[in-house]
């Protein structure tokens, strides 16, 4: 076992510190913005008296440090507070929004890797040739394009001008009402299959294609670029020349030798880029009216919904640090040279 228990405990502790730091910063940021959330809480046309009561309930008149201590106290009991906008417990809102983001991010991420890996290998084997030039140019473009811009262009061309694919929503809203569709796991591709509705499944998949392709652009470019340079490096190794000279074919050399060198560092940097992919998914959600955590946080920000903002961002931070820890541990497992 290349990963010691001590290491895992250490990483969890680190995660805790990072999350606490993020919560603190976001907490302070929300409190120093000159907003008046009591208007939201008390509802429209509230009287002076109602507004005063709202400020009291939300503890808006207490010093920030007192508000902070109250927040941490309930946080320790697993309570993220109640959303001022939806009036649901924030945790419940997040749990129902998270699958939408994960379905989008994971699909995009998987598409990106599945396309990027062979592209990178192809480029390395054609080093300096036509395919190599195309892959290199498009991967540079792919990591430089702002994701919301790509999303808008895709939406404009594929959905609005050509009408090839739906331009937004996770599921056809009227179809969902007519069929009484209720999410089970929150992953709609899975849920529509679970209830055995192929028509809904096809609708959901069609709606997933465009946003997930946009989310895929960045991981695809990164995978292709890294695979290419790692493969080029490995292909120069003495042992590759030797295997060739003993009669082993190039495809066997790539599959059984070079990939062993490429995968561990690839997993390490792709793992780190999953955080970036999540952020990309948030932006895509907003443009495609996609019900997910990104949409939830944006709505929370627009309506000064403090508990929802802090809770949402905290969940993102927890995800981010846990993924990083997981990637490091995975890296140690597949690369015998790494010991943690």
């Amino acid at each position: 076992m290349p990963v010691s228990l001590g290491y895992i405990v250490q990483r969890l502790f680190l995660t805790l510190i990072v999350v606490l730091g993020v919560v603190t910063i976001v907490f302070i940021a929300t409190r120093i913005i000159p907003a008046h959330p009591e208007f939201l809480w008390a509802g429209p046309h509230a009287t002076e008296e109602q507004l005063r009561k709202a400020r009291e309930e939300l503890r808006l008149d207490e010093p920030i440090i007192v508000q902070y201590v109250y927040y941490l106290k309930s946080l320790l009991q697993g309570d993220l507070g109640v959303s001022w906008r939806t009036r649901n417990p924030v945790l419940k809102d997040i749990i129902s929004a998270l699958p939408g983001t994960l379905e989008l991010a994971i699909t995009g991420f998987a598409i990106g890797i599945a396309l990027g890996l062979p592209l990178g290998l192809l480029a390395a084997l054609n080093y300096g040739g036509f395919i190599d030039k195309i892959v290199r140019t498009s991967t540079i473009a792919g990591s430089a394009i702002p994701i919301f811009w790509a999303a808008l262009i895709f939406q404009l061309v594929l959905a609005i001008k050509l009408g090839l694919l739906p331009g937004g929503h996770r599921i056809d809203p009227s179809l969902a009402i007519v069929t009484g569709f209720k999410p089970i796991t929150g992953f709609y591709t899975l849920d529509t299959l679970l209830i055995g509705r192929l028509d809904l499944f096809i609708d959901v998949v069609k709606r997933l294609i465009m946003p997930s392709l946009i989310v895929a652009i960045y991981p695809m470019s990164l995978t292709a670029r890294m695979t290419r340079s790692l493969a080029l490096e490995s292909l120069q190794e003495d042992f590759v020349r030797n295997l060739r000279s003993w009669g082993v074919s190039d495809s066997t050399i790539i599959r059984r030798y070079v990939l062993k060198f490429i995968i561990p560092p690839l997993v390490a940097s792709l793992g780190l880029s999953f955080g970036y992919t999540l952020v990309g998914a948030f932006l895509v959600e907003v443009i495609f009216a996609w019900n997910g955590l990104g949409m939830y946080i944006v709505m929370a920000i627009l309506s000064y919904d403090y508990p929802a903002i802090i809770g949402g961002i905290m969940i993102v931070a927890i995800f981010y640090t846990l993924i990083n820890a997981f990637v490091d541990i995975l890296h140690a497992h597949i690369d015998p040279r790494v010991r943690l």
């Binding site: 190794e237 003495d238 042992f239 000279s245 003993w246 009669g247 030798y257 062993k260 060198f261 040279r337």
Partner: peptide
């Protein structure tokens, strides 16, 4: 390669993949 002509390489340390 390997069938008509074969190579006994130079640098013993780097001659084989360390992961296979």
């Amino acid at each position: 390669r390997g069938k008509l002509v074969s190579l006994i390489p130079q640098d013993v340390g780097a001659a084989l993949s360390p992961l296979n």
